[in-house]
Every structure is written in C-alpha cells, then in structure tokens.
C-alpha cells in the first residue's frame, strides 16, 4: 500500500482531469452546432464534474478540507491534470477529438481500478464507468462522422489530430504514484488498438509520434490553465470571508 501523500496525488490527478475537462466542455453551453449536441456535451461535462466532486470529497476527508477549498484554493502548480484536458476548445472537431482521446483512456483506467484492492477506488470506478462508457460511444461516433463526413470536416479533424496527438503520451507516463494501481503498458496497448480502430473508421491515421508534450501531472502547465482557474476561482478568492454561497 502506498503512503497517504502519494494516494492523495493519485486521486488529485484523476479529479483534476475531470474538473478541468468538464469546465472546458461546459464552455460549449449555448454555442454548439445544434441544440441537441449542446445538451449532449453538457451532460458529459456534468458527469465529469460530478466525478471530480466525488474524488475531492474523499481527498477532503483525508486532509480535513472541504471540496471547495481543494478546488478553489490551489494555484496552477498544485493542479495535476493532464495537459490535454486544459487545451482550448477551438472548433467542435478539436473538442470532440480531445474528448475521444481522453474518454478512451479514462475508460481503460476505470476498468483497471474496478479490480483494484482499494475499496474506495472500486466504488468510484464502478459508478463512473457507466457514464464513461456512454462518453466513449458519443465522442467516438463524432470522430467517425467528422473524419468520414466531408472533405472540409476531414481536413479540420486531421489538423486537430496532428495538434492533439503529442499530448497523449502523457497519459501513459506513470510514476510511483500510479504504478501500484495501474498498469501503464497494458493501458497503452489497449488504448492504441481502440484508437487506431476508430481512426481507421474515420479514414484517419495516427500521426508519427514526435516530441511528447507533458508536465500537467506534475504541476507544469500550459498558459491556458491559469485562465481557467481565474474564471473558476474568482469569487471564492475575491470574498474569502464569505462562509457560504
């Protein structure tokens, strides 16, 4: 069994991925290509935010803090989400591809956690995997639609793929925090099989791997995260003496 600090880092990484990506998705609310799609994306956002809360509450129990203190009173350096999760939405194609790459990874992580020996993680994974299974279905269908759709959509999502691909390596860069709980190599192998299948259905191809973009898991972020946090944390920080909102 890991020590508590490392366990908390593990939970924080999972939680921050979900919160930050959920926040990004929620930015689509009211701006999607079609009302139905808008609503669908927000459902995913709400699922992810809900999952992050479940984890923050657990961390809160361990650290004697509230979920709000954890979410609103950390600066970028203490956020441990994957860089991919904080990248800007750009157009719908980039958003949905970012989502698919993450969903597929997320699903495999949860699948492993279900059979872990940690009771909390098992219950978390069991609850979340049902939601994430649906997320994969959604985002995968859209990647295929856009890749296969028109010449224009194909070009756009191809460019998104080239841009996002270097950020996927970070998924599998696991350290002593994750090693006791996840098998990185196995996840990577399964992920590549699934993703390549989807890409081929979408008439796309995984780009050559170049220099990987990494750092988020260790608190080293892009310039984008600060803006998300400014948006998210403003009120709590501006009125620190308020007891409730």
């Amino acid at each position: 069994m890991q020590n508590q600090a490392s366990y908390i880092t593990f939970l924080t990484r999972l939680a921050d991925n979900n919160l930050i990506l959920g926040h990004r998705l929620s930015e689509w609310c009211g701006h999607g290509p079609e009302l139905e799609q808008d609503i669908a994306l927000i459902n995913v956002a709400l699922d992810l935010i809900g999952q992050s809360r479940f984890l923050y509450q657990k961390i809160g129990d361990l650290e004697q803090k509230t979920e709000d203190q954890i979410a609103y009173f950390r600066d970028a350096g203490q956020f441990y989400n994957l860089l991919l999760c904080e990248l800007p939405n750009e157009h719908f194609g980039t958003t949905i591809l970012r989502q698919y790459l993450y969903d597929q990874f997320h699903y495999l992580v949860l699948e492993q956690l279900i059979s872990s020996s940690d009771e909390f993680l098992v219950s978390y994974a069991k609850k979340s995997i049902k939601e994430v299974e649906y997320h994969v279905m959604q985002s995968k269908a859209w990647v295929i639609r856009l890749g296969d759709g028109t010449e224009k959509s194909h070009q756009k999502i191809k460019a998104s793929l080239d841009k996002l691909w270097p950020y996927t390596d970070e998924f599998f860069m696991m350290d002593s925090v994750e090693d006791p709980l996840l098998e990185a190599e196995k996840i990577k192998k399964q992920w590549l099989v699934k993703v390549n299948q989807t890409l081929s259905e979408a008439t796309l191809e995984a780009p050559e791997q170049t220099w990987p973009q990494k750092g988020g898991k260790w608190g080293k972020h892009t310039e984008h995260l600060g803006f998300i946090l400014a948006d998210m944390q403003f009120l709590q920080r501006a009125y620190p003496d308020a007891k409730a909102w």
Binding site: H31, I39, I42, R53, Y72, Q236
Partner: peptide, 20 residues
C-alpha cells in the same frame, strides 16, 4: 456564455444544469 464565474463545486453542477 458557458464561462460565467463559478462559485462552489455544488453550484457548478446546478448552474450548468440550469443553462442546459
């Protein structure tokens, strides 16, 4: 806009649900 400032974790959920 989806980028209304957010306040508590609890409120993020309800307010997003509201806009949805």
């Amino acid at each position: 806009s989806g980028t209304e400032e957010e306040v508590t974790m609890d409120e993020i959920g309800t307010i997003t649900d509201f806009i949805q």
